[in-house]
Design a protein around this nucleic acid. Structure first.
Length: 725
DNA sequence: CAATCCTGATTTTTT
DNA sequence: ATCAGGATTG
């Protein structure tokens, strides 16, 4: 069989096992993706119809990539989906038995906070400490554990005492608005499948071969969903690595993978332990680190790619120093080793760390891209337009109504919106139907007084929605999106802020482009399907261009990726491992797994960096090096000299790379842009001209003549943050 | 109801 | 330091 060429024994076993439960313990870089795609190819070759196969992955991006690989290999289309889209798909078809309309909206985090706020206000909870966020956490937890409001009891704390009633109300509203939050996509799917055998049977018959990726990160609801779906066929293949479980804070239960053999008796277990990605110095260092975890299944991941270079550890004086070092190294690899920028990555623990790197890379003019972070679909202008479209799609969606009703300003503020909400509920009408009756002055049990301006505004709004509904019936998706932008007069609103206009308009144009592309790529395009797909899209899925840029991302977002050159920065206690993990042994172990994931992304070069002091919560803090640095055996690590001195290596230094680097930049690394005669800007003294450059005891020192005060001062480059003009 | 100013939190990770 | 949301004022 052509598939089996080039696979090792364990990989072949995983590919060839067709029936029954199978657990593939796939260490980092062990060729997991290949095994999965070949396994699907093998199923197809055995004559199993592609429609009988279902793959489930963690992200849309992973799903898309796998689908593409399978298509390339076999010319077949196999359904590969995330848990959440799978839930959405099933619910779209069958949710009516739970009393929701099949055109339900999907609420993102933002929407759910708004709804929760309404619930909190409803219950006359005035305590400021009772934030939507806290309740969201509890509700999410409950749903992930398959507990409905009726299963929740009051707890001892004030928050826990209110929680059941908030949850109940929240869920009632969601149902009333025919809206689902993210967790509902799993929770309601399980509820549906569990309580309605005839529905379950339908899906059990549809998919006879299930394949679950990243199984170590499944939560209770996902686990239950899988269990229900395979109960009939028993053909389930799960792939995962307990050492890479990094989502327990989101309800992922590592026991799901550890208990697989118990849950599915007779399961075959295959271990993939040869790593094809990393040099052995890197891999062995990572193995040693993860060995510090107590709670763990032993495994022996090995590589025959040769030792490679040692891991480099750099300690900066400050976070700027750290960023400067990373930027210089990346410039060096790009210039001297001709490594494309996009093959290098900076990993950090928290998003806020990206800031310093952005500053530095902007300054050095090294192109970069942040993966993750604020999503395109979270931008206000995009959310606004999508909210209009959601109103077109579902006239019950109150959150989208309240988002759009006052765009542009129609004199309908918070108070009026609240009255409308209550009115609609009491009349038992959808928001739109209620408003229709209201403006027509039809008799209502609960009439609301409107000012003439409000009445007119509301009428206009309803006209817009109706017009858009008409367009959505007759025209292409593109037309609907364009009309929504035009009809709402949105560009006029954007134009009020000249600063951001171009940016935001560009985003709207991109939305139009996306709608065109999507319509072309989709078999039966509809507004509903489009909205659903966008709701489930995450920031990670926007791996847009093929441009050559350095990647910045959190380590969480790096899972599943690999890079020749990897920098892990901020290796400091309370940052990585994070302060919030300090008192929990389990949490520390998860941080360690996270570090393991970061390290095992690297193929050739791995850098670890920390800073002695860092600005955190407003003030400069002295940082202690991460315990992980101490846990990595020193034989795998080369310690680089710290602080500004790294920019001035002694000539006697053996490291050729550094000498090349210095020659190349003709002076101080990081200050190479400033030379004699340059005009510069100093924060305190203003604009000046560089008169002299010298090597002082504190490092590179400029004599600068400042026009303000007509004065020449000595400025130490390291401390001044001079800007070239 | 809308605009402006002020305060206080905010920084863990996200399908 | 920045930003969101709240309070205050028009």
């Amino acid at each position: 069989m052509y598939h089996l060429k080039g696979l090792n024994e364990a990989q072949q076993a995983a590919v060839e096992t067709v029936e029954g439960p199978i657990l593939v313990l796939a260490g980092a870089g062990s060729g997991k993706t290949r095994v999965v795609t070949y396994r699907i190819a093998n199923l197809l070759e055995l004559g199993i119809p592609s429609s009988k196969i279902l793959g489930v992955t963690f992200t849309n991006k992973a799903a898309g990539e796998m689908q593409e690989r399978v298509r390339t290999l076999t010319q077949s289309n196999v359904l590969i989906s995330t848990f959440h889209s799978l839930g959405a798909r099933i619910l779209r078809e069958s949710i009516h038995v739970l009393g929701y309309k099949s055109q339900f909206s999907i609420y993102d985090e933002d929407d759910t906070y708004k709804l929760l706020k309404a619930c909190i206000d409803d219950l006359a909870i005035t305590d400021k400490k009772m934030e939507p966020k806290a309740f969201k956490q509890l509700i999410s937890q409950a749903k992930n554990n398959l507990q409905g409001p009726e299963d929740c009891e009051k707890g001892p704390s004030p928050l826990e005492e209110l929680f059941p009633s908030v949850y109940a109300r929240y869920q009632t509203y969601l149902q009333e608005y025919h809206a689902l939050d993210f967790d509902d996509l799993l929770y309601l799917t399980v509820k549906l499948l569990r309580d309605h055998p005839e529905v379950l049977e339908n899906y059990q018959n549809r998919w006879a071969f299930l394949l679950i990726d990243e199984y170590q990160d499944t939560n209770q609801a996902q686990y239950e969903m899988v269990r229900l779906l395979v109960a009939r066929s028993g053909n389930i293949c799960v792939v995962g690595d307990p050492d890479q479980s990094i989502y327990s804070w989101r309800g992922a239960n590592i026991k799901n993978i550890l208990n697989f053999e118990m849950d599915f008796p007779g399961a075959k277990v295959v271990r993939l332990e040869q790593n094809y990605r990393s040099r052995s110095n890197i891999l062995e260092a990572a193995n040693a680190l993860i060995g510090f975890n107590f709670n763990r299944y032993e495994k022996n991941l090995w590589s025959d790619l040769g030792p490679g270079e040692k891991i480099k550890h750099f300690t900066g004086d400050t976070e700027q120093d750290e960023a400067r070092f990373v930027a210089d190294r990346i410039a060096y690899y790009h210039d001297k080793h001709k490594i494309p920028l996009k093959e290098m990555v900076v990993f950090y623990r928290t998003n806020s760390q990206s800031r310093v790197f952005e500053d530095r890379f902007l300054f050095k003019r090294i192109p970069y891209v942040i993966i993750g972070g604020i999503s395109f679909y979270q931008r206000r202008e995009i959310k606004d337009i999508l909210a209009f479209l959601k109103m077109v799609h579902s006239s019950s969606d109150f959150i989208s109504f309240s988002r759009t009703i006052n765009i542009p300003k129609r004199g309908i503020g918070e108070a009026s919106i609240e009255k409308i909400r209550i009115g609609a509920t009491q009349e038992g009408l959808s928001i739109i139907d209620f408003c229709e009756k209201l403006v027509r002055g039809e008799s209502l049990m609960f009439p609301i007084k409107l000012t003439p301006k409000q009445r007119q505004g509301l009428t206009e709004y309803l006209n817009i929605i109706n017009e858009l509904k008409r367009i959505s019936k007759d025209c292409s998706l593109k037309e609907v999106v364009i009309s929504a932008i035009e009809q709402s007069g949105y560009l006029k609103i954007l134009a009020e802020d000249r600063e951001t206009f171009d940016d935001r308009k560009g985003n709207l144009d991109e939305l139009i482009t996306k709608s065109i592309e999507w319509e072309l790529a989709t078999e039966s395009p509809s507004l509903g399907a489009f909205l659903e797909e966008l709701s489930l899209k995450s920031t990670l899925d926007e791996t847009s261009s093929e441009q050559d840029r350095v990647n910045f991302m959190t380590i969480h977002n790096g899972k599943g990726l690999e890079f020749p050159v990897v920098f892990i920065v901020g290796m400091e206690e309370d940052l990585f491992p994070h302060a919030n993990s300090r008192d929990s042994k389990e949490a520390i172990e998860e941080e360690r797994r996270l570090c393991y994931v970061g390290m095992t992304r690297a193929k050739e070069y791995l850098y670890l960096a920390d800073a002695r002091t860092r600005y955190l919560w407003g003030t400069s803090r002295t940082q202690r090096p991460s315990r992980f640095l101490k846990e990595i055996p020193s034989k795998y690590v080369e310690k680089l000299r710290s602080g500004i001195s790294a920019a001035y290596p002694r000539r006697s230094r053996q490291n050729e790379e550094f000498i090349e680097e210095i020659d190349q930049t003709k002076g101080a690394v990081g200050f190479d842009e400033i030379v004699l005669g340059d005009a510069v800007f100093h924060n305190e003294f203003g604009v000046g001209i560089v008169q002299e450059m010298s090597q002082g005891s504190l490092g590179l020192t400029y004599k600068i003549h400042f026009s303000k005060g007509n004065d020449t001062k000595s400025i130490v480059a390291k401390y001044a943050n001079l800007k070239k003009l």
